[in-house]
């Protein structure tokens, strides 16, 4: 994103809207730090610039810069998934897709949130460690598409320095590998150069319980009481 210097009146109204703090206020006008801007589009959509000085220059959509927008602006579509947003539909449609079946768990690591963003190359500390464990990354996830080789977890050279609001790593593990993989993530987390949040997707047991909570607590991981529940209203329903 850029600000037309000839129009900007330096009012500063757009500054608080930028989640990256990338808008800098000068003596008479404001400017966007091109390297720090993740192209999330919040400034142009929300800040109601009184003189409409904020604009998206054509360079925004040139490779490799173009990946910033697809990973940061939820209104843009990922070309390889056709889905708006940064990841798959994960738990949201699991009652219909059965992406996460009984006997397996889904794991999602979201880099860059809350609020700091990430360079795509920085997620490699974790993706390489996971690849060593034999993890197969979700093919429909846009980050997997930017790996040199999904078997090594290495991110393509030309996109490594691109900064994005968030990037999600998704994969499925067999139930029996839970402790091993979670411990590995826990250990590798200390080496991560950026912030990440992590989440686990599990089916409810037929009796309505979630035994995974107890298993996680045994290895020192305490899931939040706040959970995202697929209430099973989707049709056709998949029970597997």
């Amino acid at each position: 994103m850029k600000i037309r210097q000839e129009l900007c009146v330096g009012c500063g109204q757009c500054l608080p809207y930028c989640p990256m703090g990338a808008i800098e206020r000068g003596k008479d006008t404001s400017r966007i730090n091109w390297d720090e801007c993740v192209e999330c589009g919040i400034c142009i959509r929300q800040s109601k610039c009184p003189v409409k000085a904020i604009y998206e220059p054509p360079e925004t959509m040139e490779w490799p810069r173009s990946v910033r927008k697809v990973f940061s602006d939820p209104t843009s579509k990922h070309e390889n998934t056709g889905v708006r947003g940064r990841g798959t539909e994960e738990v949201k449609t699991n009652d219909v897709t059965a992406r996460f079946k009984r006997g397996f768990f889904g794991i999602a690591l979201e880099f860059g949130r809350p609020g700091v963003g990430t360079r795509l190359g920085d997620v490699e500390v974790i993706t390489k460690a996971l690849a060593e464990e034999g993890i197969q990354f979700e093919a429909a996830n846009p980050l997997t598409f930017l790996m040199e080789d999904a078997r090594t977890g290495i991110i393509k050279e030309d996109v490594r320095n691109e900064k994005v609001l968030s990037a999600i790593v998704e994969f499925v593990i067999p139930q029996e590998n839970l402790e091993e993989i979670c411990t590995k993530i826990f250990e590798t987390a200390s080496k991560a150069k950026c912030i990440f949040s992590w989440a686990l997707i599990s089916r409810f047991e037929p009796d309505g319980t979630l035994p995974v909570v107890e298993r996680l607590e045994k290895i020192g991981i305490k899931p939040s009481k706040n959970m995202k529940i697929n209430v099973g209203l989707g049709r056709p329903l998949k029970e597997e």
Binding site: C194, M227, V231
Partner: peptide, 24 residues
């Protein structure tokens, strides 16, 4: 959420659990 589902007569299908934040 579980008590809401019970009241409505729904059987929760899957859960997404937050395991917190890491990194620097």
């Amino acid at each position: 959420v579980q008590s809401i589902c019970k009241e409505v007569g729904l059987k929760p299908h899957s859960a997404n659990l937050s395991l917190g934040f890491h990194g620097s």
